[in-house]
Every structure is written in C-alpha cells, then in structure tokens.
Amino acid sequence: MTSELLDRALVEEATKKSGLIWVQGAPAPGGDPEGTPTRALWHVWHEGAVCVVGDGPGEQPLPGLTDGGDAVVTVRSKDKGGRIVSWPATVTELAPGSPEWEGAVAELKGKRLNARDGEQMPERWRRECRVLRLEPRGTTVPLPQGSLAAPPAPTPATTRRPVPAALPRLLLRKRR
C-alpha cells in the first residue's frame, strides 16, 4: 500500500510540473503489437488525471488514444528533460458539454499557447476536437530504455521553400 501511494504521489507531482508528456496508445486489434508511435503532448493535470485536447484542425494529433483504451504515459523532468516516471493509463473521452468536459476545458484553455481564436476556442473544441482524460491505473512501469529517437511523423506542413532570387545579392553585397 505504501509503495502504491508513493507511486501515485510521484506520478501526480512529476506530471503536474512537466509541460510535455509522451503518450503511447494501445495497439489496434490486429495491428502492430508495439502499439502506436509515442507522441509528445501538451496537457494539464486536472482532478487526478491528465487532460489533453486534439484531433482537430490546428490541434495536436491523438493517434491510438480511444475511449476505454489503454495508454502508457512517460513524464520528463521540466529542468533536465530526462525521463522521470512511466505509468499506465485508462483513456476516457469526455462528452462535450458535460461538467467534466467543462472543467477540463477551462484548465486546458488557460494553458493553450498561440490559440488562433482566443475566447472562441472552447466552442471550436466542442465542434471539432476531442478532449481526453488519461487516468493513472495501477503502479508505475519501468522506464523505456535507449534513446527512443524516431523520424518525425509524416505531415503536409513544411518550412522548405526556394530561396528568393534576391537573397544572395542582399547577403553578399558590401555594406556602405
């Protein structure tokens, strides 16, 4: 019982203080037994669980996270960036407009950076996104070994564009 309480306290404190968590959803039926790729997600700790919003335009993807499914959450140190703790979670999708959804969205709204629609954001989330609750289950699991480095997920986003024709002249011209 004591180790379970210590695990719970470690999970809560580490997750509250971390700005990012890494989440791996459970494998799909008949899919890869390793599960879905691990994703870095921004989150809030609210009422004993992690809350995340995503799967809508301009929001983070939540692949492999299904209502009633399982996930493994790995928490990093905010100071050093190293892994602190990993824990199993049960995923619950909050129904838009429910009291749980409203409470989670109020917390998430305060933490959302660079929102394009400000005060209209909760309404957009209600229409276009999913709000998930990842509740800790059981005791912690061993931390993953190795670097876990992986190529970035495919995306239509790009930062590569042709160099403007005038740029070399501007960079190489002598200052007067």
Rank of each mutant, 00 (worst) to 15 (best):
P96H: 09
W101Q: 00
A95Q: 13
R83H: 11
G103F: 01
G82F: 14
G82H: 15
V91C: 03
T90I: 06
V91T: 00
V72K: 00
A104W: 00
G103M: 00
S77F: 09
P88A: 12
R83N: 09
V85L: 02
S98C: 09
A89K: 03
G103N: 09
S98T: 09
V85M: 08
G103V: 03
A104M: 10
A89F: 04
R83Y: 10
E107Q: 15
L94G: 03
V73M: 05
D79V: 12
R76A: 15
R76V: 15
I84P: 00
K109H: 15
A95W: 01
T92E: 13
P88S: 12
I84A: 11
V72S: 05
A95L: 12
L94H: 02
S86W: 00
R76Q: 14
T74R: 11
L94N: 10
S86H: 08
V91Y: 03
E102A: 12
S86R: 04
I84L: 15
V91S: 03
R76L: 15
T90V: 11
T90S: 12
G81N: 03
P99Y: 06
R83A: 14
V72D: 02
G82M: 08
W87A: 07
L108S: 04
E93C: 11
V75R: 04
T74F: 09
L94D: 03
G81H: 07
K80C: 02
T74N: 08
K78D: 11
A104G: 08
K80T: 15
G97L: 08
T90H: 08
S98F: 06
A106I: 01
L108F: 01
V85I: 15
S77I: 04
A95N: 04
I84N: 06
S98G: 04
L108K: 02
P88G: 09
G82Q: 14
E93R: 14
S86I: 10
R76P: 00
W101V: 01
T90D: 02
I84Y: 06
R83E: 10
V85R: 13
K109A: 13
P96Q: 06
K80P: 00
G82I: 08
E102F: 02
W101D: 00
P96T: 11
A89V: 14
E100L: 11
K78C: 05
K109W: 14
K80R: 14
L108H: 04
A89Q: 08
R76M: 13
P88D: 08
S77W: 07
S86P: 07
A89D: 10
L94R: 03
W101M: 01
S98V: 02
D79F: 05
V72H: 02
A104H: 06
E107H: 12
G97S: 10
V85T: 13
K109C: 00
